[in-house]
Simulated scan of single mutants.
Amino acid sequence: MTIPADDRTGAGVPATAVLLTAERTPAPRKTFWTQLGASLAMFGNRKSAAGLIILGVFILVAVFAPWIAPYGPSVQHLDATLQPPSWQHLLGTTHIGEDVFSQLVYGTRGVLVVGFLATIMATVVAIVVGVTAGYLRGWKSESLSALSNVFLVLPGLPLMIIIASQFEDPPLVVIAAVLGLTGWAWGARVLRAQTMSLRNRDFIQAARANGEPLHRIILVEMLPNLMAIIASSFVGTMTAAVLGLTTLAFIGVIPVSNLNWGTILFWAQQNSAFPDYWWWYVPAGLCIALLGVALALINFGIDEYVNPRLRSAGERARALKKRGIDANAAVTAVRTIPSPATTGSDQESTPV
């Protein structure tokens, strides 16, 4: 019997057949660009975008430093010592005529190189220790947890001073390793707690029941769900690494040959630039603060993406702002909307 076309979803075909047909419809396939867009969604809000723009400017300055800086960082102009900012020297000169703007530009490279290297090292160690300690059970998990707790309570700055002072002229890799060694424990602790909540989820239990190997469960099943936490930990660790580097340079632990913003502050302090010669130390301090603000904005954006309450509150505030309503106002705005049933001057006040 031929079922009419307009009756195939009615009494002519059982409801179960219709449901089975609907269930067999293949889901749209996720392409590489779709997965990449989903991974970068945490950076889609305005806070993260502003932080990424500022960080991108610093990266461009570090990459194109030889073309941006008008002079070499150690070129001396003995006829123009301790000069205030001018067209010839945009940020003035030091006590031996070195251009402060050129030193600031070249110092950006040292800060970002050490910051990224230290953060990558610390993040890798935090992922290995934290995720492994969260997934395993028994004495193995407790041992890794105790190791991260020990590094978490160790005083970071004294430990960095002790390790860095053992080298006469440490290269950037050694400085980054010292900063990474003292900065991985917090991220490992957070990842362990998040992994412990994931290991009892249904999809992890299903993968374990199917006989999936451990490395595949961690790499394929767990890490994609931990990317937001890892990104937040990466940003926080980089902030601590930049502050640690500039602190070590300012107190003179790192040799002055490793030019960075902390080195500029060190020479300014050694030559009594405070407070008269403000152009020597204020730009370096502002760059440290601006980079910290950029990383903080990125971290705030990631936190808003991870936390559902913050994300819904942000979306609501943006929706109200588009409608011309201040979300922080103490009184709810009321707009007068004409009623369809009224004519002329008769209107009905409806709160929005």
Rank of each mutant, 00 (worst) to 15 (best):
R189M: 07
L191K: 07
L191Y: 09
M196S: 09
S197A: 12
D202Y: 07
D202H: 08
F203Q: 04
F203N: 02
F203C: 03
F203T: 04
Q205E: 15
A209E: 08
N210C: 01
H215P: 00
I218L: 15
V220K: 13
E221T: 02
L223Y: 08
L226N: 00
M227A: 09
M227S: 12
A228Y: 00
I229F: 14
A231L: 07
A231K: 00
S232M: 15
S232V: 11
S233I: 09
T237Y: 08
T239R: 09
T239L: 13
L243T: 07
L243E: 05
T247D: 05
L248F: 10
L248M: 15
A249I: 04
A249G: 15
F250K: 00
I251D: 11
I251N: 10
I251M: 11
G252D: 06
G252I: 06
V253E: 01
I254H: 01
I254G: 01
N258A: 12
L259H: 12
L259A: 13
W261H: 08
W261C: 10
L265N: 07
A268V: 09
Q270D: 11
Q270M: 12
N271E: 09
A273I: 03
F274L: 12
P275V: 07
D276Y: 15
Y277D: 05
Y277V: 11
W278C: 00
W278A: 08
Y281M: 01
P283N: 06
A284D: 02
L286I: 14
C287I: 02
A289D: 01
V293R: 10
A296K: 13
L297C: 03
L297S: 02
I298K: 05
I298N: 07
N299C: 05
F300E: 12
G301M: 03
E304H: 10
Y305W: 13
R309L: 14
L310F: 04
R311D: 03
R318M: 13
